[in-house]
Amino acid sequence: MAGSFLTTKPVTINNNISPKHPLVFMHQAKSGGTSLRASLHEAAHRLNLKTYIPCHDVDCQEYNTVGQVAAIYGGHFCWKSMVKDFYSRGVNQFSCVTIFRDPVPRVLSCYSYRLVGKLGSAPTCVADVPPEQLKSELQGHACVDEPFRRIGDCNAAGEIEHFHTDQEHVQGWSLTLSHLSQCVPLIIEEPESYKVAAAAFPQLAEAFLDLGKVKLNKNKEYDEHCHPTQAHLRAVRAVTSQESRIYKAARKRMWQLHRLLVK
């Protein structure tokens, strides 16, 4: 399926972002997307484009786009409900951008942010959690499989590691890759990817190129003296095996688009 994904047609350049042809930023958690939300919000308002971006236009905990009319959306949205709402309003074409991050540091960041900071339910260092328990905690608190959840199906794709049949597994992958083929995949470890988004969405080129200057926010809950053992890293790699595969496919797709769009 990843091979077929890489043969899909390139994304369409959107030279005129508007409520009829909006741009949606599908924000994957703990991938540097907070900075992009802010950049898109600022750039859009300089262009007098209406935005719907949680933490800027509405409460940070808003995850629903239904009934919201804007030229630019950015947040932890659900693809299915978003597209259904678009179509009901006659919006049949939209552009998409998302950010990927290497799954191991992304998941470790989720551990610190969610389990330690938000919930206060885990030690500040993953090395203080038995590896098998760590796997269970990461899965149980939705730290893994973020691309499938955000780009695929909010309800089911978060459980992709636990699908009971090959058919369910294939459907989860197929749905996610089908949606992802419509997006520009930014790769936080690859600054050249920002040039792809700048070329695909020239009105907002400055906002994307400025991402190259941004450093990830330091997680206040991160224990600088924490050094995960090899057993803990193996546990994290085990629960991110599916995410790692789609991350690699997204990187290949980005470089394909780079060759086509970046002059």
Rank of each mutant, 00 (worst) to 15 (best):
D128V: 07
A207H: 06
H76K: 08
H56I: 12
K213C: 10
H56C: 08
L6W: 15
L204Q: 01
P22L: 02
Q28Y: 06
S31P: 02
R106Y: 01
S193L: 08
P130K: 06
E137R: 13
K218D: 13
D166F: 15
F77M: 04
G33K: 01
N217P: 02
G32M: 07
R253M: 09
Q133R: 14
I17A: 09
A198K: 03
K220R: 15
S193M: 14
R89N: 13
C96R: 04
T7D: 11
D166C: 06
Q230C: 04
H45D: 09
A29W: 07
R149E: 03
E221Y: 15
R253H: 12
G172K: 02
V196G: 06
D223F: 09
K9R: 07
T65M: 15
Q182M: 12
K84T: 13
S121F: 10
R253Q: 15
S244T: 15
E190V: 09
A70V: 15
A199W: 12
L233G: 04
A231Q: 11
T12I: 13
G33D: 01
P54T: 08
C78E: 10
I160C: 05
A142H: 12
V116H: 06
K20A: 14
V11F: 11
P105R: 00
E192I: 03
A249H: 14
L216T: 01
Q256H: 14
Y111H: 01
P19L: 05
P105G: 02
L108W: 05
P131F: 05
H41C: 11
C226D: 04
L257F: 12
